[in-house]
Amino acid sequence: MTAARKSALEIATPEGIVFSYELATPVPRALACAVDTVAWLGMAYSGGRIATGAGFLSPDWASFLRVTLYFAISVGYAIVLEWRWSGQTLGKRLFGLRVIDAHGLRLQLAQIVLRNLLRPIDALPLFYLAGGMTVLVSPKGQRLGDLVANTVVARECRREIPDLAEIAPAKYNSLMAWPYLARRLRTLASPEAVHFALLAVSRRGGYQPLARVELFADLAAYFRSLVRFPDAALEGLTDEQFVRSVLRVIFGPEGRI
């Protein structure tokens, strides 16, 4: 409880693979909780209206239905949704959060039930103060219910396969006329800079023209600073074309050594 708060939960598999989940921070969790509170209150209200509407059959049983529905929804809302939506409620979906097992295993119904039954304790004395304080001090950002159920709330990390075609279609690459310089460029380029260049290429349509020119100029200057290609290789290449050529060198089959 006193260890430093982690931003990611790392899981090492028996196959020797390490993967990580980005842990949810308190603010999105609080907002998701607020959305869920509104959602279940709305559902309970609607349920109550429907039960009242059935009062013409028997006012007593309609009242029975209203009381039990309110209770069932207040207790069961998060349990049912987290179970059916693999760790998500309406609020968590909205804010891209998901409850996962603290060891990366499959989330079990018993864990979901326990973490939600502990909510009244987390909510003490008011507005989830006990739970919120525990989230702040526990290393994995767990509230009391999470600690008991061995769960954590992580940011949704489902990603699409990146489209490598956007990097560069197969065209003549003047940089490959000097293969030894291309090899050197591949060796020296930092992963962060390459990732940044990839993002710049994939999002180029979203930039203001002037900003785009400046961005690619900076990137081109960085790559040029790593390896000095002869003027013949760079002739007629704009900064953006140069950055694309660099990415083709790094990713494309022509860059294979």
Binding site: F19, G104, R106, Q108, I161, V194, F251
Partner: peptide
């Protein structure tokens, strides 16, 4: 091959989801 973080993130996400199904022994 650390120059493609997006693809690595995608595969990490896929492997983590599969891990939770495969390694569950409870």
């Amino acid at each position: 091959f650390s120059t493609e973080p997006r693809l690595r993130d995608f595969l990490e996400s896929l492997v983590s989801r599969a891990y939770s199904q495969i390694h569950e022994t409870r």
